[in-house]
Amino acid sequence: MTQTSDLAFDRIAGVRKTPLEEFYASGHRTCQGCESALVMRQFAKASGPRTVVTGSTGCMYVANTSYMTTPWVVPWMHTQLGAAGPSAIGMAAGLRALMRKGRIAQERINVISFCGDLGGGDMGLSGISGALQSPYDLLIILYDNESAANTDIQATGLTTYGAQTTFTPPGKVHRVMQRRWKKNVAGMLAVGHPTCRYVATACSAYPPLDFLNKVRKALAVGGPTFIHTFDPCPKGWDYHPSYSHELGELGIKCGIFPLYEIVDGRVSYTYDPKKKGRIPVREYLEKQGRFAHLIDEDVAYIQRRVDAMWEEWEIPGVAPLKGGLRPA
């Protein structure tokens, strides 16, 4: 593992050095304890005033722009579900064309596109893949609260195994209806796009400032970049809103959501369980109502899968290939 902290970028060195200006201000209609709103606030803060934002349909669209009110201080555009990647390409290309024609000043304008786990990890995956092959400077942020949260908590391809959602209710015959293992979106995009220079996973709750600095680093590296955030959601995960940060931290520490960044193909772990250890996934699962129906056997299964990810994968948390090359 190579450390990539030597990359030059405007690092926020401490909580007190965090910019005070808000570009995602108060006045939104997200739920109490919403970590995805914090993702919006933090990336806007890290990116600063010379930023344009586009976002595909999802709770961060609906809750942030209802009734012609908005917390966005920077320009923002809604795009269709699944179009986070293409709309970012369009925006970046439009800005480049205007600059080339001299219609607007030559300057760095950050293009940031966000999408939810349904809009990005399921429907919009091909569009993000296209964007990561584009020649433009753009950052795509997938805010992952593991459900379609604005349409009443439906399961997505990124919902944790076993979770109860409105589409995966425990039944009399089948206890576990969410039987799909969470898609490894960041790893898939990093492995599949060798020219993409920066892919990371993050959590706005833990460690502090990590997500802000990853946004700064992605923008500094340039080209198309991608960050996948892990966002506890009180409504969808069924817990008291005051525990959002704690759940984010538990999710990272139990290793169910690996925290890393990949710069120019080099992986470095933000939270490295091999050095810092992992807590049992039970501590993370048992605090959420959406797992209340699971029995010991289910929890043990999830633990085994997480153990396998950290102990057997060639690149833990990133690429699920095992054991290197076999002789032909």
């Binding site: 349409t151 399961a155 209710p169 039944g171 015959v173």
Partner: peptide
């Protein structure tokens, strides 16, 4: 239209002969 999907998933939880897919789009 979501209630149709939701009710279908509830039905699938109790009736293994009924197959249900929440697709990516």
């Amino acid at each position: 239209s979501t209630e149709i999907l939701m009710r279908a998933s509830v039905h699938a939880a109790d009736h293994p002969e009924f197959r249900f897919l929440q697709a990516e789009d």
